[in-house]
Design a protein around this nucleic acid. Sequence first.
DNA 1: TATTATGGTGAAAGCGATTTCAATGACAGG
DNA 2: CCTGTCATTGAAATCGCTTTCACCATAATA
Lengths: 326, 326
Amino acid sequence: MVKMKDVAELAGVSSAAVSRYLNGGYISADKAQRIKQAIELTGYVRSSQARALRTGSTKLIGVIVPKINSESVSRITAGIGQVLGRRGYQMLLANTDNAADRELEYLDLFQNHPVDGIVLVATMITDEHRRAIDSCRVPIVLIGQHVEGAACVYHDDYEAAFELGHALAGRVDGKIAYIGVTEEDRAAGYDRRRGFEAGLRAAGNPLDAALIRLGSFTLDSGYGAARELLSAAPDVSFIACATDTMAAGALRAIDEVRGVGEGMHRVSGFGDNAFLRALTGGIPTVHYGYLTSGVEATNMLINTLDGVEGESGLKTLKLGHQLMNV
Amino acid sequence: MVKMKDVAELAGVSSAAVSRYLNGGYISADKAQRIKQAIELTGYVRSSQARALRTGSTKLIGVIVPKINSESVSRITAGIGQVLGRRGYQMLLANTDNAADRELEYLDLFQNHPVDGIVLVATMITDEHRRAIDSCRVPIVLIGQHVEGAACVYHDDYEAAFELGHALAGRVDGKIAYIGVTEEDRAAGYDRRRGFEAGLRAAGNPLDAALIRLGSFTLDSGYGAARELLSAAPDVSFIACATDTMAAGALRAIDEVRGVGEGMHRVSGFGDNAFLRALTGGIPTVHYGYLTSGVEATNMLINTLDGVEGESGLKTLKLGHQLMNV
DNA sequence: TATTATGGTGAAAGCGATTTCAATGACAGG
DNA sequence: CCTGTCATTGAAATCGCTTTCACCATAATA
């Protein structure tokens, strides 16, 4: 492996000069030229490990996600990767598989192992999380949850759910049920349910607490909850779900119980999943710019790291949403 | 930041001893104990950057994927991540967004930037790819394509497609059409089409070359191709697709043209997408263990890196498949 | 002419680990 | 008592780069 010293010798300069050439310090045109040639000749590439040791920066961003194989998360990740690539950073990906404690673990690992910053696609925010975030040694941006005092990019789940509930209340006749997710997930659990309830209530069609079920983000859990609902309360005519994935499960359940195709206009979701849209023609749902949230969060983070001027760096950003098919 | 020297001083030993303690070299029980305490007391964690510089190993694995936001790829990635986490490595993720040249770029980047090995979720394998793979300075495993002389984990797309074609030939009456993908993707393009054709032919119901279209992996492209097919050849009664995603698009097209629900038994796919399964009750498709291929490939790679005994290290592994809903 | 900037430069000091090496002491065997 | 193992040990050399520092021209200013 050719190192800087070799290049320097070949070019007849000191390695300090080569380093300066590479990093844009004082260098005479003459030597710059010689160094350039020497580098090309030897095919030299600088060791990022030595550089990292010396500078303390690795150009690595840690990205922690709850589940990579989900449409929303993988879109966010795509957005993150896009910006990272463009701005000269690389992505260290950690998939926690929905285990909140592994989130903390990785938060820890990433601080000691070498990342310059962290993007956390958040679900549950416990006190421990808050503490870990506060005491994080590198800049960190959250996606998906609004946490006081932390930099975050999120959607207004309450407002979106409110609008959805309000809009649906008028269009649906009969009983509306709701399949939510754990309220520990503030955004997708608590906010969506509360917003939806408030929306229905505001439209004069309040949600019956007995018709609320809890899923776990998966298609199967949506299916199971819906089956249970349909047999426990056969007069339910519409099932609103906290995610499109669970809505797909509910759809399947309704189709099974009431006949194929029946489900299509009897569920709503969140997230505007492309498959669901194509296969059903579109159920009522909320469109979020997942990719955008990845992009925005990452830009925010890197602006801070690179000290981009005119940029205040980390902050809080609420992205918009769009009601679909209502 | 507390460094090894600090720990050493506190424990009254040399830093060499601490290093040995950490890496399992000769150390007396007495000193080991003192070092252990000193580490706990100081909260010392060793700098992976310094370690990387010295040892040349970063415990980082580069993972190159064509598109992270696709069900199959994100499942593979989940499998990779699982093994990586378990075996003490971290994942450097690069998303090429289906640009083959960016694959090469990252292959390059990863060799210079510091990874111990590479997992390439492959699509197109050009000569340039082959060269890049051959001359790769770190171990590399491919997923999804079979490349002579390279370590790879893949599925037998030809065989699977053959079986699917053969099985469908009997069940479908009327004309069968096919929406494929670029043949530069040997596995998903060439092998699947050829296998499918051969399967149909073997069953005495050969595919009409005029009924073949080309999509681009996306739902929309499947939709577009299907619309075009349906108007160009209204007597087509079944559309086989090279991916479930395109099948979803085709389904939508059929529903639009022929009425909702009609599509369900008129398309087939590849990949056994969970949404598709739930929403349609299951179209004929091929189930691949995507997560497994990620797991297997990664284990293969790390066995090589860690020199696991009894393991021959890198090799070629063909995984099985399963016909669904035929 | 004397000073002061100013662009350029290389030697050398780290960054924080791992690892070689020679040295040590203990202990068994002869 | 001498010699050979053998487990332990710390000093010191690296790993490959960045960056400080002192220094040198040369040009600009007083």
